[in-house]
Computed example of a mutant assay.
Amino acid sequence: MVLNHKKVAIIGAGPVGLTMAVLLQQKGAIVNVYERDRNAHTRVLGGTLDLHKQTGQKALKKAGLLDQYYKEALPMGITVADEKGNILFTKEITPENQYENPEINRNNLREMLLGSLADDTVIWDRKFIAMEETDSKWLLHFKDKPDVTADFVIGANGGMSRVRKYVTNSEVEETGTFIIQGDVVNPEKTCPEFFEWCDGKRPMAAFEGNLLVANPCNNGALTYGVIFKKPEEWKEGCPLDFKNTEQIRQFLSERFSSWSMLYQQLFLSTSLFAGLPARRIPLDKPWKNNRPLPVTLIGDAAHIMPPFAGQGVNTGLLDALILSENLTDGKHPTISGAIADYEQKMRIYARKAQFESGKNEQEMREVSFSFTRFIR
């Protein structure tokens, strides 16, 4: 194995970074994950994740965690509705489709992956700043923490990764779509009408350029996303203060003023908001071939894309699967060779996923958009 006596540093303890660590550690590699969160109990915000059979689930199967994923994940039907709350279409869960892509809470997935790692694998409270070559090793710098050395660095720290500049000059670009995420605590009590209307399914609704996608069953919370084309007047930045809950409630209530009060109740019951523009990183430019020491990227750090085809985390988990196999199957005589093969394959499937996500994004912003065309 090309990793014998080599120390691997993975930057980022998201699902992709942790899966990479599990797959390498199971083959005997020396690996540590460095994560900026203070500890394992730091809450990971956001909606649930659905892992696809041909990508995310394959990686978990290789890690020996697929059965546990099925046990903890929740198969969910889908409801397509109009702005008045009328149900247009429903996809039910059946014995045949229940394992296609069940939803799992991000924190539950993190705990599941952490449980498969040695206790000292993840080093918490480490915000990566930079790294440099020294004595034929990478010297990694963290904010207000001691430096560490590694033979091989894998950047798995998201779309705004600081590891990226050591691999490529490509920069993240906005796609023109804005997403507001909301969390509703105890939805059975705080927005009972909307929660009951969901009926345990994920509702989706679109009208006049505004889209709403929700999940009523996210570890006791209801999470949702509001998606719309970024207004022209937001060119210099979003004017909303997402710490000002009342301001965001008012913004959404006005934007959705023609929608049913069913949706208005959802906004008024929301206790936490977050906002972000949809982003992508182009894969058309070649990555640097003069890297002084082994370093590469996986997950959003490599190919962040709009979240409109459910491909982001799944593509990242496929990265972890392919790269870990290249590094441990004995078919590649050098780490650099294993990386080059992985990156060549990744560009093909990640470009395809980005294209699908971008196509869906453009169609979603059309007034005539119908979710039913994306439901299989």
Rank of each mutant, 00 (worst) to 15 (best):
E174K: 14
R36L: 14
A130I: 00
N290E: 15
D67R: 03
L317N: 12
I348N: 07
S336Y: 08
K91G: 09
D319R: 12
E366R: 15
Y224G: 06
Q68Y: 01
A13F: 08
L3N: 02
V148Q: 14
I304R: 11
E132K: 12
L222P: 02
C217Y: 10
I304M: 08
L240R: 03
R106E: 01
E361F: 01
K62W: 00
N244H: 07
E100H: 15
K288Y: 08
R110C: 04
F308G: 07
Y342A: 05
R280C: 05
K352E: 13
K229L: 02
I129T: 06
A320I: 03
I304Q: 06
E363K: 02
D119S: 13
P203T: 09
E100N: 15
S136P: 02
L318D: 07
A309G: 14
L283D: 02
S116Y: 00
Y99R: 15
P187A: 04
P216T: 09
R376F: 09
L318A: 13
T315G: 14
N210S: 09
P216G: 13
T79P: 03
T90A: 02
N326D: 11
G85I: 04
I375H: 04
I123D: 11
T328C: 10
S324K: 10
D341C: 02
P231V: 02
R376Q: 14
G14Y: 04
G310Q: 10
K27Q: 15
A73Y: 10
F152S: 09
L66M: 11
N314D: 09
K229N: 08
P292M: 11
R106D: 03
T270R: 02
N219M: 08
M261R: 06
E133Y: 05
R365K: 09
V213R: 00
E356G: 05
N97W: 11
W234D: 01
S116L: 00
V172D: 06
H141W: 07
P294H: 13
T149L: 00
F207V: 01
L51I: 05
F194Y: 12
A274T: 07
K53W: 11
S116P: 01
Y69F: 15
N101W: 11
A301M: 08
V44Q: 12
F251L: 03
N210W: 09
P203H: 00
A214D: 01
R162A: 06
N290F: 01
G85Y: 06
V8N: 14
E171C: 03
Q25D: 12
L60P: 11
G17Y: 13
N107V: 04
M364K: 06
R126Q: 15
L117W: 07
T372H: 05
L222C: 06
V167R: 14
Q68W: 00
A278V: 00
N108P: 00
E111L: 09
S368W: 05
S368Q: 10
S116F: 00
A350I: 10
W259D: 07
A274L: 05
Y69G: 07
R202G: 09
E233D: 10
R249K: 12
E83G: 14
E361R: 03
E366D: 12
F142I: 12
K288S: 08
I104G: 04
E174W: 01
